[in-house]
């Protein structure tokens, strides 16, 4: 039997023209030292896997829960109701002249997206351990896919804000055209931090336990239940060091058009995210070669 296989393959090899051999993609595996670049070409080739992993996360989540997609609305809705009661009605937190429910819900939208994306991406490498130890693909796909899955929840929750705007007779201004930018900015902020945490999580499982605390802490530090205008004007750009301040203020402005456009504060946030993101990419790429051995 082996003889037959040999002759068959030899015969075949003889028939195959030389050109076909030369077309074969060549790849070299060798130890990489020092800083490595983000391999965008590789990432692009695996874009379908990115989509499939995100699709899996969404599908499985909705299949396993009794309320399914309703969760995407329930969480921000109830948080909004609670905030409206305690901060809006009882504590009378100023809301820049916007009805408090709308004020807090427009902030909760990006916040939920961010919190979900951050949590999921930070746990993503550890959660996909089986994949990472058994098959090759660009490791960046893992946190990216978990973040993409959060967009579905976001889209569902977004429908509600349109209803609320109609209810409060809020007409969006031209600023709404910048909304896609702010959605992207939310995701990138989550990715920037998520890259660091997911890679750290592989080596130090402390990350997993700290994560809930980080998210809680960050929520209070961000202008979700209150307005960034509470911060004195001259200190406000520094508030932008918390990138979620830039995201949320921008979101409110883009969607409702009632608050002033976030100027310096937003640019500080963008700068911070850019720094964390670039660092995150390199840290992640540097650590990823050890993932399969450590996870």
């Amino acid at each position: 039997m082996p003889e037959i296989a040999t002759t068959a393959s030899q015969a075949h090899a003889a028939l195959v023209p030389q050109e076909e051999h030369l077309e074969l993609p060549h790849f070299r595996i060798e130890p990489k030292r020092g800083w490595v670049s983000v391999n965008l070409k590789d990432l692009w080739q695996y874009r379908e896997l990115l989509f499939f992993l995100a699709w899996r996360d969404v599908k499985v989540r909705y299949k396993q829960t009794a309320l399914g997609a309703a969760w995407a609305v329930i969480q921000p809705l109830f948080t909004m109701l609670l905030f409206t009661l305690f901060f809006g009605r009882l504590a009378k937190v100023p809301s820049d002249g916007i009805p408090y429910p709308l004020f807090s819900y427009t902030a909760l939208l990006p916040w939920q997206l961010f919190a979900y994306a951050l949590t999921e991406s930070s746990n993503s490498v550890v959660a996909n351990e089986r994949l990472i130890t058994k098959v090759y693909f660009p490791r960046l796909i893992v946190p990216l896919a978990s973040i993409l899955a959060g967009l579905v929840d976001f889209a569902i929750a977004f429908v509600l804000v349109l209803g609320m705007m109609a209810w409060y007779h809020t007409v969006p201004t031209w600023a709404i055209l910048t909304l896609p930018f702010f959605i992207l900015f939310t995701i990138i902020t989550a990715l920037a931090v998520g890259l660091w945490l997911s890679a750290l999580n592989v080596q130090y499982r402390d990350v997993r336990y700290t994560l809930t605390f980080i998210v809680q802490f960050w929520l209070i530090a961000s202008p979700v239940a209150y307005s960034a205008t509470l911060v004195p004007a001259k200190w406000r750009p520094f508030y932008g060091l918390n990138p979620m301040a830039g995201v949320i203020e921008g979101f409110r402005w883009a969607l409702l058009g009632k608050t002033p456009a976030p100027g310096a504060l937003l640019w500080v946030s963008v700068a911070v995210v850019a720094l964390v993101l670039v660092g995150g990419f390199y840290y992640y790429r540097r650590m990823e070669k050890t993932f399969a051995d450590l996870v």
């Binding site: 060549h26 790849f27 070299r28 098959v135 070669k289 399969a292 051995d293």
Partner: peptide, 23 residues
């Protein structure tokens, strides 16, 4: 060979796409 982990030393040259069935 399936690029899951990196070698410490040396190199592998591969001509063609690799499918790995480790599991």
């Amino acid at each position: 060979l399936s690029r899951i982990t990196e070698p410490t030393l040396g190199s592998v040259d591969i001509w063609g796409r690799v499918g790995s069935l480790l599991e």
